[in-house]
Design a protein around this nucleic acid. Structure first.
Lengths: 169, 169
DNA sequence: GCTAACGTTGAACATAAGTTCAACGTCAAG
DNA sequence: CTTGACGTTGAACTTATGTTCAACGTTAGC
């Protein structure tokens, strides 16, 4: 079959198929005398496999490293290893997303917890201070800086509890 | 303070800080007569805020849209809306990661479940058939999802799996 | 006055996964 | 023989988030 039919059968665009060939991902391609590419029905399977692997979180580079030229000759050990590591990656990512989500939820709560007697500006400052104090990892916010931040508006800064301390530098 | 000190205090590189300024994200900058940038301590806060928001899955574009020039004057409604939607995004992504993880686990099981009397080639074919049969329809991963992913981790794409029949064993 | 550390700029480069385009070739039908 | 659908190529473009580089200016200390 020619590229248009393969595109139709695989649900991919012709440009994507040609791109996969260009980067050495799809080698199951022949040429007719007129220069046209021809594919066997195996190509549909391979493209389906690539798409599936991509959805499972593999990059095209990873897929290329795993995909054998002969679909019946997989590198069993390498494949299982890659699958296992990908699962670990996913789990790590899930943990981070959970953290992110909790952080956002806490932020929403914190914003809504504005004391009745506090104006918006002061509340913004309170929330901001809490938030930055909560995530000192990347930020070299010294306690001096926190105090400096507080100093820009001396209203009450109701802490929602946990305020981590940063190492001074 | 000059850019070097700001970089040090914020934990970012000077090139990143200049980049943020270039794209209109960091407007809190003045110039001395010699052309040097100078920053107030507010800039540290703003950069911390940007970093935190990025970790929570916001793009720089989104952050720019939300970040007020005056840190005490937030658009409350817009902000809360953005936070709420970002949480929903995260939850959707988590659901898909779970699907992806389950799919990979099932694939590993399936590969290991090779009948004693089946050779590797036939097993490869069996597993492949099962797997492709499991993904009959294309489920799109939007660029939005990818971006949220990238924000928390460097490059791991995502999938969603569809339930299936357990075929020829 | 020299040197080192710091600052400035615009432009190019990097990544991943493609898309788009112009200019051209092939082929079947009318 | 013309038209339209399909195919070919290489190069440039895309998005997001920066980094790197060359060439140059500024400043503090010796």
């Amino acid at each position: 079959m020619r590229i248009g039919e393969l595109a139709h059968k695989s649900g991919l665009t012709t440009s994507k198929i040609r791109f996969y060939e260009r980067i050495g991902l799809l080698k199951a391609v022949d040429r007719r005398s007129n220069g046209y590419r021809t594919y066997s029905s195996q190509a549909v399977t391979i493209l389906g496999l690539i798409t599936t692997a991509q959805r499972a979180g593999f990059t095209l580079d990873e897929i290329r490293a795993l995909l054998p030229s002969d679909l019946t000759r997989w590198d069993h050990a390498t494949l299982m290893d890659a699958l296992t590591r990908k699962i670990a990656d996913i789990e790590a990512l899930q943990a981070r997303l959970t953290q992110s989500r909790v952080h956002l939820l806490r932020l929403i709560e914190d914003i809504q917890a504005r004391p009745d007697d506090m104006d918006c500006a002061a509340n913004a400052h309170r929330v901001l201070t809490n938030m930055l104090a909560e995530h000192p990892e990347a930020l070299d916010v010294t306690s001096d800086d926190i105090r400096l931040l507080d100093a820009t508006d001396r209203r009450q800064s109701v802490s929602s509890g946990r305020r981590k301390k940063t190492a001074s530098r």
